[in-house]
């Protein structure tokens, strides 16, 4: 066998392995796409069914609705005891106040842990990290008793007040990690110019912390918006209900014609989350990847 023949053979083998590699990649893509479709199918089903008349939602399995039944949306929006616009307004107000609370309080606390030197720093940090793992149920009942005693039940205060007190420690952790990445020379230069810790925080750290603040804001909004247990416990009259409670109300009312309305409002309730997901997907995924937030 001459060298050229060997050379031809190896290049043939290379070509074959190249081709089989390409084929296996194609198969992987095909399987992944199939799997993605199965994963997303429930959501597609929800969207399609929300546009079908209630009596055929279950008998008609086609993916394309024969005609659009917008009535589901108008009925659902009108709600059972209060219109959904009230629930949406309540949910948004609570979520936005919660965002402001978490962004402010967590960034203050993170700055102290990341940059300032103080007594008992290590034990306090350990204590704060421990609260990340602590189940909320341990403090749920006395918190309720406290808020009940304060007369705050059936107001948004029990839901939003803790956010102004940095109770969600993983956001503090996220920001500490971020601040540690900001060069200390910036602080030191400002200190030489006579700036104290408070000025350094507001004029140097806070602006540079923006990416972590956005991540915190997005997760806080989503989690507060979809939270069910806390409003269920604290918001007792229908005009104060949030969207998840409004959906539960539709479920409990259970008229034969409400299937469509319930699915329509379920989908509508997911729309703000979809929008936030599409705008901030990179931030969300990076946030989870770097700190292991629960997502």
């Amino acid at each position: 066998m001459t060298t050229t023949e060997t050379h031809n053979m190896t290049s043939d083998i290379n070509r074959i392995t190249e081709r089989s590699k390409a084929r296996s990649k194609l198969i992987t893509h095909g399987l992944l796409i199939l799997f993605a479709l199965i994963m997303l199918y429930p959501l597609v089903w929800l969207a399609v069914s929300s546009l079908k008349p209630s009596n055929i939602i279950f008998s008609d399995t086609s993916i394309i609705p024969r005609h659009f039944e917008w009535q589901n949306y108008t009925h659902g929006w009108a709600g059972v005891a209060a219109p959904f616009k009230v629930f949406f307004a309540n949910s948004f107000v609570i979520a936005i106040i919660a965002v402001i609370g978490n962004v402010l309080s967590c960034s203050f606390v993170a700055y102290a842990f990341a940059r300032l030197d103080f007594s008992f720093k290590k034990p306090l940090f350990a204590l704060m990290m421990m609260t990340i793992m602590l189940p909320m149920h341990a403090s749920l009942i006395p918190q309720y008793i406290l808020f009940n005693w304060l007369g705050w039940v059936n107001t948004i205060l029990p839901i939003v007040t803790p956010k102004f007190l940095a109770v969600e420690a993983f956001f503090v952790f996220l920001m500490i990690q971020f601040i540690r990445g900001i060069p200390r020379e910036l602080d030191e230069a400002a200190a030489i110019d006579g700036a104290g810790p408070i000025r350094i925080f507001f004029s140097i750290i806070l602006p540079l912390l923006t990416p972590a603040l956005v991540t915190t804001a997005v997760f806080t909004f989503l989690w507060t918006y979809e939270d069910f247990l806390t409003p269920l416990i604290y918001l007792t009259s229908i005009e104060n209900y949030t969207v998840p409670q409004g959906l539960r109300l539709l479920q409990a009312s259970r008229g034969a014609g409400t299937w469509g309305a319930m699915l329509a409002m379920s989908l509508l309730s997911l729309v703000p989350m979809f929008i936030i997901f599409f705008i901030f997907q990179r931030k969300l995924i990076d946030g989870i990847a770097t700190t292991g937030l629960k997502g």
């Binding site: 203050f108 606390v109 102290a112 103080f118 007190l165 109770v167």
Partner: peptide
């Protein structure tokens, strides 16, 4: 002084909403 000023939200929150209730 300044550190505990920054820490104060968390300290209050920890005492009032975590440790106390637990």
């Amino acid at each position: 002084g300044v550190a505990f000023l920054f820490l104060s939200p968390w300290i209050v929150g920890f005492l009032v909403f975590t440790l106390g209730p637990m």
